[in-house]
Design a protein around this nucleic acid. Structure first.
Lengths: 216, 216
DNA sequence: GTATGTGAACTATTTCACAGCT
DNA sequence: AGCTGTGAAATAGTTCACATAC
């Protein structure tokens, strides 16, 4: 992406959320200022990395003393669009899907689960907290009615492409895909893959000692 | 990492697993050869990327015709150390932990869950399939006894560092960390972070339209 | 003195492009 | 003719290092 003519790495965005989380903690325990070195220490990143990341968005620090925790927190909240609450749908209420449904952490991140879908007729109609599981056929109308903006895809590999198309068709623009398959969707749809087996496999590869180093 | 004097990107390793998965499918449906362009098509990667990745490990292709599916599959299985089965422990049997415990996909990836731990006394002793949940105190002896090589950390943020240290102390060298916190562990321990909230947050940031493009 | 902000240098990774093999 | 293998070019991302601000 581009900002003020500078290109901002995707990884910078991801780290901003980490800084924000840390700043929120610091704020709670009444720490008022922090240097890039300290913030880096707490997040396992270099001081230069912290400054560079923040530098893409403006000048938040004070030479000689560091960053004002509260101010920087607010700035990041603003930059990251955390003022808004996003409506999320979970598609596929198997083990992983129901774990995510039950996971309470999302609210604190501006994400609200408003719907859940499953192809299994036996599951349809069941309630999970305050969400009633609906059938896949109802995706389109529910996405519109509940203004779903983001969806989490936790269906089996074989169904993933098909369901993804249904979501796109219904107007969803962002998909967090847990199926270990590459989804083919239009350019304007943002897909993020989370492939748990692959993460583990990659780890085990490194464990096998076939690598030359062990750096993170 | 280094191989034949060439440096191999971490991301190449990760993609190798994707190729392997695809090749296994192709093999099942009796497709004998495939070009880098076709394999790239199926995995949403460029032909050049496919060839470059494979090129780090040797010459597997035939000019003019492509790669022999079976051969390449075997080569990758070998390179990635998928001949071995890795023993995995899950620490923290909450929603996510139990979803992973129940997730059957691991076996097909050479990963075998051999133990599960939880701090909650009420959960200790309960069985999940053929795994009995043990208390955190038993980590050290069980890791040794069951030869746990890889662990999945699904405990609350506040406990993560402490439990990670216990795992390291018990001899575990690889941790897949689901807690949204940076673990401080010795250099030789391989940690991979999977931060679900962060993935979603990053997606929502892009959804907010504050980015300049929508490329994946 | 201490810590930021930022070009410049460095490192990593991807894409290009084409010689060479079948 | 078609497709690989691979240096070279291009692009992306990180770290350095220092002038500048408080």
């Amino acid at each position: 992406m581009v900002m003020n003519g500078k290109k901002i790495p995707q990884s910078t965005i991801s780290r901003l959320f980490v800084y924000l989380r840390e700043l929120t903690e610091l704020d709670k325990i009444n720490i008022r200022t922090i240097s890039s070195a300290e913030l880096g220490e707490r997040t396992n990143l270099s001081d230069a990395q912290v400054r560079k990341d923040l530098g893409y968005f403006g000048q938040f620090g004070v030479s000689g003393s560091g960053y004002a925790v509260g101010e920087l927190k607010n700035a990041l909240n603003n930059i990251l669009g955390k003022d808004k609450i996003w409506n999320v749908a979970i598609v596929g209420v198997g083990h992983l899907g129901s774990a995510l449904l039950a996971y309470s952490g999302f609210d604190t991140h501006g994400l609200k689960i408003v719907a859940a879908f499953d192809a299994d007729e036996k599951k349809v109609g069941k309630k999970f907290l305050d969400i009633t599981i609906q059938s896949i056929e109802e995706i389109k109308q529910t996405v519109k009615k509940k203004k779903v903006e983001l969806s989490i895809l936790t269906v089996p590999v074989g169904k993933a492409q098909e369901v993804a198309e249904e979501l796109v068709n219904a107007g969803v623009e962002c998909i967090l895909n847990f199926a270990p398959v590459s989804l083919n969707v239009p350019e304007n749809i943002k897909v993020k893959d989370v492939d748990l087996s692959r993460e583990l496999e990659t780890l085990s590869y490194f464990l096998a000692g076939k690598n030359g180093n062990n750096k993170k």
